[in-house]
Structure formats: structure tokens, C-alpha cells
Nucleic acid binder design. Structure first.
Lengths: 268, 268
DNA sequence: ATATCTTTGTACGGTATCTGACATAACTTG
DNA sequence: CAAGTTATGTCAGATACCGTACAAAGATAT
């Protein structure tokens, strides 16, 4: 409890500082690399590029399927709020999550990598909204080789790290560690500590069975790290969850948080 | 035994056909997109690009470390023969394989994605040789936005598929399936049915324990699919292994085999 | 040949997770 | 408020794999 209060205080200070920071920049209207987007990638782009992408606002409802395997990719999506999962589906119908998308996301970048069709299923886990962009507009901008290309490539790289770390994690870490990791990444991506998701779905994401997740979630609940009821989960103690989670959380978080920063040589 | 003889015969016919194919093309010396490389990516490049990359032949000895986490990437490597593994290493010292590199590989492409330092350990599992290229030369060529960029991006995409499929596979499939998958991909990447690797190392790759691998390998041996002794494994029955393996093998193989093909909309 | 090292075989108690089933609790609908 | 639906709790037997230990067999060095 003490630790949690400390976190609140710290984040309070931080958000105050950030608001001040935003005010300074919104006053210098001509400043490059500054706009009102919440999406990491869009936020980092300057006005003319944003203009050329011809963005359209989009709403994402719960369980909306953004990409379907083998379907042609026609749009890129940049989430501002909400969270989406990418899963691989096996022949027996079971699925496992291989990537998460939040406010840092550019969904559909593989279309810029020379692939025409979607490789995996992507669908909304937490309803939200964002922007879409025609894949041709994105391709045209990408080919210019400028900042948009830079960011798209860095983001693909971050996705690769996420997938690789998940591969190792799924092989070595138990469900308590992985559930904690999932909850933390989800909270980060969606900027929220409460979200609607059932044990059934969590089991799919982690590649386990529902009763296993129920007992594992029960352990976290008894430890006072989370609370939940009928599909609604609330995170109570982030530092506590981090202690339970495996190291994979911070590695993935680091890359998803920082891929857009120009001068960072990202080190795990 | 019967199946194995059939396989030998088929591969005999195939290699004869391929030799004939090579002869035809080496006669038309000026043809674009044709050269004597065995490496998929280099093979697909035309003469002027190859020239600009200023390739240097390299030998890779067993267990040679090609990339080390956090070390700056200074060269790209294109394997012609041999096989290398990329692993993620956890704090407790254990490691799990997250990618394999063979004759299709371009090791170090993440340097073209905006990352300066290596993310994971990469080291030779099967000794071989190939070509190296200064990362600056590769970056310069990449920025031209031509065929080299196209292929590098497609290859990164193939790596992403490999990592994502491994993530799902490690979560859902058992050791017999995954061992069979590993052996098949290894045989494909290294173009060989015999390779030196101990159970100890296989355990690391698959994220299991050595005794587990020993018993699992014993099962495959008793089924007549492989034979082995003191670190040398030979694959006897590819179709048989494919039956034992999970679907992940073909999905990964498809992408690694075909990423370089211009007009293929790769479908898993 | 002997000693040493590496690799593999195997055994055994312990644990995590599976599988399937059933019960209960909390919402939703009529 | 009764009935139906969805989400969760729980249990018990089965299985896969762990962790550890030790033995045997094949290589290598002396």
C-alpha cells in the first residue's frame, strides 16, 4: 500500500511536469515534431508528413477484427486509446497472443515490409479509437525514406523484440510470471489500470487453460496485487506485480516505450 | 527405410536438375539477378549492388559468436553454408533460441532498422562460411530504396514470422513436436541431414532440460526417424519427422524459403 | 592401456499444468 | 422475480516436464 501511494505521488508530479512541457511546446506553433496526437508514432511526425498520410479518425469496438490472416492489408491503424492483440491461430483452433498494440502502435506496418496480406489475426481487446491511413499513402511516404520510414522501421524492430522475448518467455516462465507480465504490458499499452477481460480470454492469450488462469489470478488477488470480478480486472499494485513478473516485462516495455526516440541506442 | 531411399532418389534428381539450371544461367553472364551465390539474398541481387556492398568472404567456426547483446553491429553477414542460432539469455543464465540463420540469412539487418546495438546473441551451430559487409555500405545501399532494401525488409518480415510462430509454438506444443520442428528447420537452413549438436545444446534451443531431450530424441530414434551418437545427429526420414512435428515447421519454412520472391504474396 | 572428459541413458520424487466435470456466483433477459 | 447465460471457483486424476543424481558408454589425452 505504501509503495502504491508513492507511485501515485510520483506519477502526479510527472504528469504535472509533462503538462508544463506540453504548454511550452504548444506555444511555439511552428516547432517540428510536436502535435496533439497521443499515438507515439504520429506524435513524433511533423505537420507535412501528417498531412500526406491523410489520416481518418476511427473507433474500435470491443472484439473488432482489425486484421484477418490472408486478407489484403488496406489500411494502417494508429491507436490513440484502447488495446489490440495479435494472435497466431493453430489448426486445432487454439490461439496464442504474439503481440500487443496500444498507443505506441502502427498496426499493418508489415504492408510496408513487402507483404501484401495479413499474417495474423489482430483484434480489439480494449475498445478505443485512433486514426487510419490508406496503405498507398503510407507506402508513398515510406518510400521517401524520411522520418516516417525511420519510425516505421524502428517500430517493426520493437515488434520483433516483443515476439522474440515472448518466444523465450513462453518456453521458460510459469503462468504466474506471464500473467503478471501480460497485465503490466496491457496497463502500459492502454494507459489504464482497469480493463474488461475474462479469464477465458487471458487463457487464450497466454496459451493456457481457463482453470489454470483462474487459480493463477486467484493467487495474485490474494496477494493484493489485482482485483477482478466477472471480466473486469483492476491492477492494484504495479511494483508488486513487477516483482512477481519475469524480466521479460521490462525488456518489452523498454522497446515499445522508446522506439521512437531518435538518439537512443536501445539497450535491453 | 523405403521412404528414406525414395527421399535420396528424389534429392538426386533435384540436385541434377539444379545443376543443369545453374549451367544455363552461368552461360548468360549478363543476366540480372543471377550470380553464383548460394545465399538467397545475395543470389537475388544484381551485379552493381553486389559491387557496392564490397563483400568479403568469411569462415564461421563452430560456436563462433557472431553478435553479442549490446555490442555495436559493425558487419552484416550472409551465410552460404552452415547454421547459426539467435538466442535470448535470461538473468538466470538460461537461454532459448528465437531464430535460426542459414543460406537464406542476412545477419545484422536490425542495424538497418535503426538499432545500433545487437539485441541478442547469435552464434554458429554448424560451421560454415559466407560473406560479410560493412554496416555503412549496407546502410548506404539500403537508403537507395532499391532491390536491396526490398529484400532486407522482406527478410526482417520473415524473421518476425519465425519469432511469432515460435512464441505460439513454445506455448502450445510439446517437446517431441518441437524437436522434430527444430531438426527439420535446421536441415533446411544448413542444406544437410547430418549435423554435430549435443542433447545439451538442443535442450537450450528448445528451452527444456537435457534429460527431457534425451528421452524425446530416444523416441524419435526408436521410430526410425533419426539416428545419433555423441553429438552427431542424422535425419533419416523427413516425411516421418514432418508427421511428428507441429504445423509451425511449414509456416516458418515457407517464409524463410520464399521471402526473396518478388511476386509472391506470401500466405502462411 | 589407463585415466579423464564429454555425452547419453535412465530413474525417481516433485511440480505445474492439463482435462473434464461440476458447483456457484453474478449479471441479463423475459 | 424466475430463468437463462456467462464468468469464476474448485476438485481430482492424468500427464509432461523438472530437478537431481548416478551410471554407462564413447571420445581424448597421458
Amino acid at each position: 500500500m505504501y509503495i502504491y501511494d508513492l507511485t501515485l505521488t510520483l506519477s502526479g508530479i510527472l504528469s504535472f511536469a509533462l503538462q508544463a512541457y506540453d504548454r511550452v511546446f504548444s506555444e511555439s506553433e511552428n516547432s517540428l515534431h510536436t502535435n496533439d496526437f497521443k499515438n507515439t508514432l504520429l506524435k513524433a511526425l511533423d505537420r507535412d508528413i501528417i498531412g500526406r498520410l491523410r489520416l481518418q479518425p476511427v473507433k474500435f469496438e470491443l472484439k473488432h477484427e482489425i486484421e484477418k490472416p490472408d486478407d489484403p492489408i488496406e489500411h494502417l491503424y494508429f491507436l490513440e486509446e484502447g488495446m489490440a492483440s495479435m494472435t497466431t491461430t493453430f489448426k486445432d483452433g487454439s490461439q496464442v497472443e504474439v503481440g500487443m498494440f496500444g498507443y505506441e502502435s502502427a498496426i499493418g506496418v508489415s504492408a510496408l515490409m513487402g507483404t501484401k496480406v495479413s499474417l495474423n489475426r489482430i483484434y480489439t481487446q480494449i475498445a478505443g479509437h485512433g486514426y487510419s491511413c490508406q496503405v498507398e499513402d503510407a507506402r508513398r511516404e515510406f518510400r521517401l525514406g524520411g522520418h516516417f520510414q525511420f519510425l516505421a522501421l524502428r517500430y517493426v524492430q520493437a515488434q520483433l523484440v516483443q515476439a522474440m522475448q515472448s518466444a523465450g518467455c513462453n518456453a521458460k516462465h510459469n503462468f504466474e510470471q506471464r500473467l503478471a507480465r501480460w497485465l503490466l504490458i496491457c496497463a502500459d499499452r492502454a494507459h489504464t489500470d482497469t480493463f474488461k477481460i475474462s479469464h477465458e480470454f487471458l487463457a487464450d492469450m497466454l496459451g493456457g487453460r481457463r482453470p489454470t488462469i483462474s487459480t493463477t489470478a486467484g493467487i495474485l488477488k490474494r496477494k493484493g496485487l489485482i482485483e477482478y470480478s466477472r471480466g473486469e480486472i483492476r491492477i492494484l499494485d504495479i511494483p508488486g506485480l513487477m516483482k512477481v513478473s519475469c524480466e521479460c516485462y521490462l525488456i518489452i516495455k523498454d522497446h515499445l516505450d522508446n522506439y521512437s526516440k531518435f538518439d537512443t541506442a536501445i539497450t535491453a
